[in-house]
Design a binder for these strands. Structure first.
Lengths: 364, 364
DNA sequence: TTGTAGGCGTTATCAA
DNA sequence: TTGATAACGCCTACAA
């Protein structure tokens, strides 16, 4: 006996359903559904009647019900370590813009780079049946239970900033090797000989890349790689601070810090030790922000195209969601060295990559 | 004839449904549902059988279906002007933490402070049947269509940082009047007499409060309020930049800029005009960040408890979602003046509010 | 072109 | 305690 008799709404909830519209327009739900979804097979007369009814009732389809029926939520999940880390807001914004463009929404989760939180977030996202997931993977492997769930649900993933081929090869990252390489070279060109590193975690892909690039950059410039001048951080302020204290005690004349948050911690340590940049040490940081061009020391940085990372990742994910595997995953976006005073370019000799500051010339 | 015979899953999708579990455990879906939701009325024997079946099938309830049935999504929508504005990430993080604690997720939207985008976002959120919405309202009034939809759906709102009593009195804001008042006083105490303002939009509540506080602060210190030294911005960098050029041309000796992004623009303008802070003008900004204590000029700011705003707002919203109206809406959190060198405290005579920097003493 | 009815995966009501 | 079965609101074969 179908559902014909149902949908008499209780007084409290006034939202109209497709049935109410059908009744109001004296047609079937099929017809209503047709005009909502702009199917071609609905007569002009009826369409107008339905549209009138829709307006009268201020009807809006219940997307929850639609999702259940169509097995598609038009929602994508995004899990980042911490939206409060200034690196991620632009990534998320890029993703949101791309998603929005295609009628998708973003369900946002923070993992704090902790596996357990990450897995909890993923379970929830999968249970809510998001159509796809953007993920900045933590360093640890998934537990078997999550692997199984992922396999069952079969939803596309695209990785943000970090690779994890066990899960997927679809990843949008930046060329951190190159960025770190240039950072090291810039320090060398500025005349520094005893160059230290505050690196990222070596168990995540970009931590490794930033370390390797630094290493190779030094070698290319004929400088030694000194383990004593290298400390490993975790991309958070606190680790930059501790790293700063232990590294600066060895009096390097140049330092490359692998992200902005650690740079802040590092500068705090330097401040406490009474050391000044660039007078006492040259500094190159990763990850640029507009205000860094205005405060002193004006930081030499390697800008990462954060917005583009998020945007491209979401676009790629949407392709996968739509079953399009034509384009290979694995975008690697190019970073850009921005030379400013913090590297101490007294002797500096490089092309200027920035319009905002004093151009410095390559040697003849 | 019920649904007994259904749910033979097609090969592609392997996720188990509650029916599969029921069949596997040779019980009814009612029993399975009971186990999942830890209802008391399910025998121990059966419960164990069901749990075993759940494990075997790696069953996870489909939250989409549950939401439809329960009329509750355990999702809350949050719409902010722009997550890339450094003010909002911490707000969002606070909200996410509170939400997470209660098993809720965040659906994030950016409005760019444009009414049309805001309304599109709200429509989507409402159609997806979020249980509640956190909103930083744009300056313009809702259109009638949105009003009607809101009335129909009857979902609780809590406002973030801005008031809009037409919609709800539940709002979590900061005491911007007080913050701006203190900012003005601090500039006066530092010895400035010709004090200018780069304010926020006057059609949003906190823009007005920051202007009024500034105005009253000046008066309290016996200084004139000079319209010529006041420009209106929109909280974005560009407006701070333009405001900086037009305001600095009048050579104020002290300036209060109503948020960080505009301060960045303002400093750029100053830089271009060859003016230095604090030598050529004292500066107090709104909205503090950890790194501002480390770069020069070290900014005197009025810190707003961003994280707490988000957290408290989400908590309040969750109370409303659960039908709890006992606590009155309308939290006003207290800002904190952090005195640092940018205000030019040569003559300064205030208590120190910050541990990070040189305490300056009240005169005897 | 339009309508009927069953399915999406839960929860919840009412008997048994 | 348990089980059948109607909602929840939408889409969509299959019929007409």
């Amino acid at each position: 006996m179908g559902r014909a008799g149902r949908s008499r709404r209780n007084a409290s909830s006034k939202v109209a359903s497709i049935y109410d519209v059908a009744r109001e327009a004296k047609v079937s739900v099929f017809t209503v559904s047709g005009v909502i979804n702009k199917k071609s097979h609905v007569g002009k007369r009826l369409r107008e009647r339905v549209e009138a009814a829709i307006n009268r009732l201020n009807y809006r389809p219940n997307l929850l019900a639609r999702s259940l029926a169509k097995q598609r939520t038009h929602t994508i999940g995004i899990v980042v370590p911490d939206i409060a880390n200034p690196f991620f807001p632009l990534v998320v914004r890029g993703a949101e813009d791309a998603a929005q463009k295609h009628g998708y929404n973003l369900l946002l989760c923070n993992s704090d780079d902790i596996l357990e939180k990450e897995e909890r977030a993923l379970e929830l996202l999968l249970s809510k049946r998001v159509d796809g997931i953007l993920l900045t993977k933590t360093a640890q492997d998934f537990s078997p239970s999550i692997w199984r769930m992922i396999a069952d649900v079969n939803v596309p993933f695209v990785l943000l900033m970090r690779e994890y081929p066990k899960l997927t090869r679809d990843a949008v990252i930046t060329d951190d090797y190159k960025g770190a390489y240039e950072a090291a070279c810039q320090l060398a060109r500025a005349g520094h000989r005893k160059i230290g590193l505050v690196g990222g975690p070596l168990n995540v892909s970009n931590g490794k890349a930033r370390w390797k690039g630094f290493h190779d950059g030094l070698r290319a410039m004929g400088l030694p790689y000194d383990k004593e001048l290298v400390v490993q951080g975790d991309y958070r302020m606190e680790s930059g601070y501790r790293g700063g204290h232990s590294l600066l005690a060895r009096r390097p004349d140049g330092v490359y810090v692998a992200n902005f948050l650690m740079t802040v911690g590092f500068l705090k340590a330097a401040d406490e030790m009474g050391l000044r940049c660039p007078e006492d040490f040259g500094l190159v940081s990763f990850d640029d922000y507009p205000w860094l061009a205005l405060f002193h020391p004006r930081l030499t940085t390697v800008e990462l195209p954060k917005y583009q990372v998020g945007f491209a990742a979401a676009e790629l994910l949407l392709e996968r969601i739509n079953g399009d595997r034509s384009r290979g995953g694995g975008l690697k976006l190019t970073p850009e060295l921005r030379v400013r005073e913090s590297c101490g370019f007294g002797l500096c000799i490089s092309r200027a990559h920035s319009r905002e500051f004093v151009p410095v010339k390559e040697p003849g």
